[in-house]
Design a protein around this nucleic acid. Structure first.
Lengths: 336, 336
DNA sequence: AGGGAGGGTGTGACCGCTAACAGAAAGCAA
DNA sequence: TTGCTTTCTGTTAGCGGTCACACCCTCCCT
């Protein structure tokens, strides 16, 4: 026989006060006598009372939930970000509701956003770093606090990004510094801003070093694609340095090179991006670029909270610098 | 100037009906004249009306949200499961709220569960496959629909599991079939049920084949641990076959063996577990066991929904069989 | 002693929805 | 026509909180 959960009035009755006083205790309102507060807290404990967030959300018009829109939370980057976001949000008393989209078209994204809005989420974080996401986002109500992670740098909305270009520059420069004449780049899917940023950084480093810019090798984020690209790269004798858009791609490249008898780093050097936990155990250990997901999460949440709390906004944009992690997949080019 | 979101009454006024009729249209109640329904739908569209889930949750006592309790959503298994769960839930009109716990003690788990209960979630899915989770779960209200994934098989609660033992048996048997006299096992953390199940399956296969049972090599889920274990294994000349509790562990082992000049699969065969997308691109491609996360998610949700909808429960337990994926990391043992 | 300030508490309305019932309209048998 | 279902639709009362306000009491100043 399911008994109704205790409500505020039950607590109030037991403590001999009004429901409003209970509410005050719950919300840490200052004007409550210490003795009363204790009585109420005792009653709460005795009944095992749990405030009903739905009721609160109804009257305040906002729940203590943050909606996240993500595409593929199986990928290492998004998954890490999501986890970090959840941790950070919990510390501020917020819950996190995920909404994944399979495809990143208007309709799918809007649908997920709608779902979040129907729940009256306090704010939305979008981890959908592709072109089409931005468009879908433009047409939603202006009064919903929103932060985009790794989104379109050219759109005027609150944005937190990993400095992809800086990371890519560091990776490329690292290879150049090792003595390579130029660096090839296996890029991520073309519609991701992350890819674009990494390509940009790679180009910049090459340009400013006066190095030749080899043709771009386009791929997606998978090891499979990396493998295919690696098979090509392995056949080209003048390729001595490769920077891949992520670590999984690098893994595929590594395997292809290995199969073709090209040694890493003796014959070819490879640098990845992401620093997945396994990168240190690739053959050979992979030099890569590590983004700080914790910092990204923190920054996003901070931005979101200032939007939620006040009307006037703080910073509209924040960039987190990644760091290069040097391991054994880089060496000087072979002497001819 | 933030205008109030349109509510049911606004729609009702515009359509010239009562709010209740609007409610009926929204909930697909049968007794509404077609013409009225259309008028209401037109009004909804015109106003951009979005039903307030919080209000509904308040009055019905249950929200259309499923709470997930997970430990580390960065690991491939949990992340995949979470994603699958989210997909499946969305199809049934449910949102998913994640609550990660850093540590798996009573207090942390209870705290997360409390948070979910405060939101009046419709049900809870626990992906926290360790001993301590079970205890924390026992003391929570009986009337909350709950499903445990990969939890304690000895506890009388609804449970969906990957058949770890079967997977491990298949892996071990596969190695035995290749001609190995016995198989070593690098196991996951001892407090995970997944680990226990895999150990059990490994032992069973060995026993029923009449093979010697080598000492267990305990580790956690990381490539780092795999590497350390691999360094030991590499020094033992009579080790010809290793089954690791997951693919990352296998990666570490592979690297250690490589460094010690022991070739895989020529000298030593290796089998993993999980089939992470990268497994096919390890050096060499890893033979592994693939659990069907989609099926697990589906089964869990189904179980949860029957609990939500009715009082009498359906199946209390469901087991999903994993499949062996043969790749190139397995070969017959070297001839002496 | 009178009066204002302010801490501490209670009262009532209301947030947006659903459930239960009541009432109106329509259909059909007698 | 009457009377009785069967649809359809409206009315009212909450769900469990918060907000705005009114009230009471004490304290302090004049």
């Amino acid at each position: 026989m399911a008994v109704r959960d205790p409500a505020m009035t039950d607590v109030a009755r037991l403590a001999g006060v009004s429901h409003q006083t209970v509410s005050r205790v719950l919300n840490g309102h200052p004007n409550v006598r210490e003795q009363t507060r204790l009585r109420v807290q005792a009653a709460i404990a005795e009944l095992g009372y749990r405030p009903n967030r739905a009721a609160r959300a109804l009257v305040t018009g906002r729940s203590q939930v943050i909606g996240v829109v993500a595409q593929n939370t199986t990928l290492y980057g998004p998954a890490s970000l999501l986890a970090a976001l959840e941790q950070t949000a919990a510390e501020s008393g917020f819950a996190v509701s995920v909404g994944s989209v399979r495809d990143l078209d208007h309709r799918s994204i809007s649908a997920v956003v709608e779902r979040h809005l129907a729940h009256r989420v306090a704010g939305i974080v979008v981890i959908a770093p592709v072109e089409s996401a931005g468009e879908a986002l433009e047409r939603l109500p202006k009064d919903v606090p929103l932060v985009t992670v790794d989104g379109d740098p050219h759109r005027p909305m609150p944005l937190v990004t990993v400095d992809q270009a800086a990371g890519a520059r560091a990776a490329t420069q690292h290879l150049l510094d090792a003595g390579h004449r130029t660096v090839w780049h296996v890029s991520g899917p073309s519609d991701w801003f992350d890819s674009a940023g990494r390509i940009e950084g790679w180009r910049e480093a090459l340009t400013s070093a006066g190095a030749e810019i080899p043709p771009l090798v386009p791929a997606d984020w998978s090891a499979a694609a990396g493998y295919r690209c690696g098979q090509m790269l392995a056949r080209m004798p003048d390729v001595t340095a490769v920077f891949t858009a992520n670590d999984h791609l690098a893994l595929g490249v590594l395997r292809a090179l290995h199969e073709h008898g090209r040694r890493v780093p003796d014959d070819i050097s490879v640098v990845g991006f992401d620093d997945v936990p396994e990168a240190a155990y690739f053959i050979p250990p992979l030099t890569t670029v590590r983004p700080d997901f914790g910092a990204v999460a923190q920054a996003s949440l901070e931005m979101l909270l200032t939007q939620i709390e006040s009307v006037s906004g703080g910073a509209l944009r924040q960039t987190i610098a990644p760091t290069l992690v040097a391991r054994r997949s880089v060496a000087p080019p072979p002497r001819r």
